[in-house]
């Protein structure tokens, strides 16, 4: 019940709802990027609220690299069924056919082909003029400078120097033919806000966020879960069951687990308050170099 939310969560909720309605009122063909993670779960929950009693008047889009955790895919299909929404799943078939994978091609190439290129293909195919994403400003430095309505060129590129000033809640929604806008309704949320909100609203999340004994190998100081038989083990590596959970979810070979005993959302919130590393620590694709998120975004990454 909304009135029981803490004041700052209520303010964030109202802001996100306003942003979503602004998109629906101004764009012909919006779509919501659904990545199955905690932020996407919150964003979807907010969309259910924003348009109630109507269903969200747009479909969901998932970019499936084919390397997601199996539990994520199961959760995705269950969520779409439960809420009665439309979901489009897109995979870069060319990339798949040429066997692009996270083991042989390096995280940077793999991300470019299976995520960034795949996303651009799906956006072009759908003719979407606006796409919601669950990114938050507290995630990363170049994200901290991102607009709520982020303008993209006809080739989906992000030019950080050519973004529109964004004052009050007056979002400039005008675009030319072929240009698009990425919209981030969770811009002002922090990781802690996300968890507190999930707790308060009892939003379903993928069980991978909660601790359980899972088969992992230790690699360069990171714990990688062997989610299926495609996991390439190096000589001497044997998956060992350890109590782990994930702070962020993506492609399993590129997503590190943390050791944890947090089995409830309350535990997670508590754990977060004492955390000494950031959530993106577990994202191997961010570690190439410190400006790498900005570079990926310029190329069209979310």
């Amino acid at each position: 019940m909304t009135s029981q939310l803490k004041p700052h969560l209520r303010r964030l909720e109202a802001e996100a709802i306003f942003i979503m309605r602004e998109v629906v009122a101004n764009f012909a063909n919006p779509v919501m990027l659904y990545s199955i993670g905690k932020d996407s779960s919150v964003m979807l929950h907010l969309a259910m609220k924003a348009f109630y009693p109507a269903k969200p008047p747009f479909s969901l889009l998932h970019i499936d690299t084919t390397w997601k955790f199996r539990e994520m895919i199961a959760f995705r299909d269950e969520t779409v069924r439960r809420l009665g929404l439309n979901l489009t799943v897109h995979t870069n078939l060319e990339g798949k056919a040429s066997g692009i994978n996270p083991f042989d091609h390096g995280s940077s190439n793999y991300t470019q082909v299976m995520k960034t290129e795949a996303l651009k293909q799906a956006l072009d195919a759908g003719g979407y003029d606006a796409a919601f994403g669950g990114a938050r400003r507290d995630e990363e430095k170049s994200r901290a400078k991102e607009r709520v309505f982020s303008f993209r060129t006809t080739s989906h590129g992000w030019d950080p120097k050519n973004q529109r000033p964004e004052l009050w809640s007056l979002y400039n929604t005008r675009i030319g033919t072929g240009e698009t806008i990425r919209v981030f309704p969770l811009s002002n949320w922090t990781e802690l806000d996300i968890w507190e909100y999930i707790l308060a609203e009892q939003i379903p999340i993928v069980p991978l966020y909660l601790s359980e004994a899972r088969p992992v190998v230790e690699r360069g100081g990171q714990l990688i879960m062997a989610d299926d038989e495609r996991m390439r083990l190096k000589p001497g590596e044997t998956p060992v069951k350890r109590r782990v959970r994930f702070r962020t979810l993506g492609c399993y070979p590129l997503t590190a687990a943390v050791e944890s005993d947090a089995t409830t959302i309350e535990d997670i919130v508590e754990e977060m308050l004492l955390a000494t590393t950031s959530e993106r620590q577990g994202r191997l694709i961010d570690h190439d170099e410190s400006g790498s998120m900005e570079k990926k975004k310029r190329e069209g990454y979310f």
Partner: peptide
Amino acid sequence: LLVDGLEAEREQGITIDVAYRFFA
């Protein structure tokens, strides 16, 4: 350097764009 997020900013040592930061 914690808050100058864009490469151009780090190279020039100046802030160009608004950055939003969170603490409690």
